[in-house]
Amino acid sequence: MEQTNTIQFTKKNLESDQAVRWCPGCGDYAILSQTQKTMPDFGRKKEEFAFISGIGCSSRFPYYMNTYGFHSIHGRAPAIASGVKIANPDLSVWVVTGDGDGLSIGGNHFMHALRRNMDLNIMMFNNRIYGLTKGQYSPTSKVGHVTKATPNGSIDIPLNPPLLALGAQATFVARTIDRWQKHLSEMMTRSYNHDGGSIIEVYQNCNIFNDGAFEEYTGKEKFDNVIELKNNEPMLFARGTKGIKMDGSNPVVVDMEKHSVDEILIHDETNLNQALIVANWTSHPVLPEPIGVLYCIDKPTYNQEMVNQIENARKVRGKRSVQDLLNVGDTWTVS
């Protein structure tokens, strides 16, 4: 939710007094730094932010933010954050989670927080690996991924996080990449401004256990492999040389030298059917990796509906004392 006031703080004020202990070169550093850089622009008091996390490398995040924070237990951050948000809807509540924390052990909470449209900003750092437990495959690891736990290659089929989020009826689904700093900042701002549950999947490089997992989206050929979605704009990528066109119900990549921009699919953030199609481009052999806001609609939030129900109950039934409640009904007096 937006709020404007004159309280100013800087990136520096958001740095806690704790030494950051991620491995040197970890993508988490970039996300932390970008978060601290972006947040002052929201125009909200620093004390009104709460960062809630589960367990894993990403979940150490709250310790490094000089805001209110809670490093909880594995997978449960959306549940604890839901409690915080319902209890005090005036707070801006952020959940920091990972692919293991958010999708495996915490898959249930992830799904239900989104379904309820709880006004939480969920940032899921997806590095497609378990880092803190030293390199086992995660629910987003690719088939065949060799780790200590899968010496013969993983036979698990990976989850597609945006598709899962859409299936859970999320009202804001976005994806970004740790190395795309400006884009990351934009996605955070969009999430902040969305009144409802938001999920930002952040592709994040684990340089120790899964280095280069996203090389094709961050390296030299990144623009050929990534499509940056912009609302109401044609879906062009590869510096405008390629576009996406619908061939019946199938999206296909076309060469813009041979096609007009009128033929190109226009991104519409409010179109669920289209969002489902775009979400399916995740790790697609031919289609480009979509980043940006895949889907964004307005729906009543759980937290606001809760406020409304309580206000309404007070209006209808009036404010009574507990003593009144004790005294009503079938009573008798012994004298």
Binding site: S72, A79, I80, S82, I86, A87, N88, N108, H109, H112
Partner: peptide, 20 residues
């Protein structure tokens, strides 16, 4: 708050207690 499971039930009250 009828939570999605027993764990979310108690986690939500930990969050609510944190928030007062």
């Amino acid at each position: 708050f009828q939570a999605e499971d027993e764990i979310a039930g108690i986690m939500s009250i930990i969050g609510a207690s944190f928030a007062g």
